[in-house]
């Protein structure tokens, strides 16, 4: 509740991140979608690509690298990365479970779902399991109100969840099966 705010300074990557040739093509394609001189517009999408490419989070080095690509000041990237809640500026686990906690999901049991996952993984909201596999987060309304309780992991929405489905989900992710349809 009451809060002393420590500026959440991002940790650092030891090496300078560099997009693979394939990713660089995607990054260029995104930049080219905007008129000349408006490449800053590509920032958010490139941050998504960067997060995906460099361990699921944005280090200072990653953000500076993106600034360099877009020819903008690093602070412009920091400002944006810390504004939008999808961006992690701290390291996260391989799989980030973001459980929607807003009203409509709460009405159908999101609080219990969060507790269940936390107990099962033995972590609190915001924490990562010791093996670095899972991070548990809460999210505000993810637009799945009629299909709750639910969680998002990467691009995927897992809806109509209950304890059995969560068990299956965790087992699947743990064994590297990210295509599970639940």
């Amino acid at each position: 509740m009451g809060s002393h705010v420590h500026t959440p300074i991002s940790e650092r990557h030891s090496e300078k991140p560099v997009f693979s040739a394939e990713k660089m093509v995607e990054v260029q394609r995104v930049i080219n979608e905007y008129p000349e001189g408006k490449s800053k517009s590509a920032l958010i999408r490139i941050l998504h690509i960067a997060e995906e490419s460099f361990g699921g989070w944005l280090s200072i080095e990653t953000m500076d690298y993106v600034a360099e690509i877009l020819k903008i000041e690093p602070i412009e990237v920091y400002e944006v990365a810390t504004f939008y809640t999808m961006f992690n500026v701290q390291p996260v686990g391989n799989y980030v479970f973001e459980v929607c906690r807003t009203g409509p999901c709460m009405l159908v049991g999101s609080d219990q779902l969060i507790d269940y996952i936390g107990n099962k993984l033995d972590i609190k909201v915001g924490e990562t399991t010791k093996d670095g596999m899972f991070t548990l987060k809460t999210a505000e309304c993810l637009g799945a109100c009629g299909y709750g309780p639910m969680l998002q992991c990467g691009k995927k929405y897992h809806e109509h969840l209950n304890p059995e489905k969560v068990d299956k989900l965790i087992d699947a992710y743990r064994s590297g099966n990210t295509n599970i349809e639940i």
Partner: peptide, 10 residues
Amino acid sequence: DKRVHGVLNR
């Protein structure tokens, strides 16, 4: 010539 500070978080 160069801004190094700004508004962070929200």
